[in-house]
């Protein structure tokens, strides 16, 4: 058991018998008495998200999870195929459990993954990732409007809104949570 106030992003909980991972938490101090914590939880088996509001003093049932490195092999359109790097055991998980992760993960790259028993609960994509710009529209000549933007596609297929000066073949750093452009990366 842990106090709800100790739950952090990544904490795994058992709610009505189902494992959930905290994907966001926000403290709220609405008034007198206890502070509250608003939790956004995700079920790794169904992808379902759940919002819970608890007093920071309320008890929650936490579960022990382990982190293991997994290499991302490929996806077949339905499942992600990953390999545990310590045992070379291959696993597959429905892509729906990790929506749009195919656009964030690079083939062959190793990611820290969270497991509860045999169940994959979380793939930890770093908060900022450098991507190669695979496709970019040409900037329109004479377009000098301040803050003008366009869309580019990364090597993983992620569409990102970027400033117009970004060209194909360049590298950009992207916030993987908001999927927003952060900066150009020089080689």
């Amino acid at each position: 058991m842990i106090k709800a106030g100790q739950i952090d992003k990544g904490t795994a909980l058992l709610i009505k018998g189902q494992p959930f991972v905290c994907i966001d938490r926000e403290f709220v101090n609405p008034g007198k008495g206890s502070a509250f914590v608003r939790l956004k939880l995700k079920s790794p088996s169904t992808g379902q998200t759940l919002s819970e509001t608890m007093k920071t003093q309320d008890n929650a049932e936490d579960i022990t999870v382990v982190d293991r490195d997994c290499q991302y092999l490929y996806n077949d359109g339905e499942n992600f195929h990953l390999m545990l790097t310590d045992t070379f055991e291959q696993i597959e998980v429905p892509m729906g459990n990790f929506p749009d992760y195919q656009f964030l993960m690079k083939d062959g790259e190793t990611y820290r993954c969270t497991f509860w028993e045999a169940q994959l609960l979380d793939i930890q994509v770093p908060p900022k990732v450098v991507f190669l710009v695979a496709e970019a529209e040409e900037a329109v000549k004479g377009d000098t409007v301040q803050g003008a933007t366009k869309y580019v596609t990364t090597e993983t297929g992620l569409k990102v809104r970027v400033p117009i000066f970004i060209k194909q073949g360049e590298k950009i750093r992207v916030n993987t949570e908001t999927r927003e452009y952060l900066e150009r990366v020089n080689n």
Binding site: P30, G31, K32, G33, S34, F36, R38, T53, K55
Partner: peptide, 9 residues
């Protein structure tokens, strides 16, 4: 108030 906040929030 605390119970109210559980529902309200």
């Amino acid at each position: 108030e605390e119970t109210f906040n559980r529902i309200f929030l």
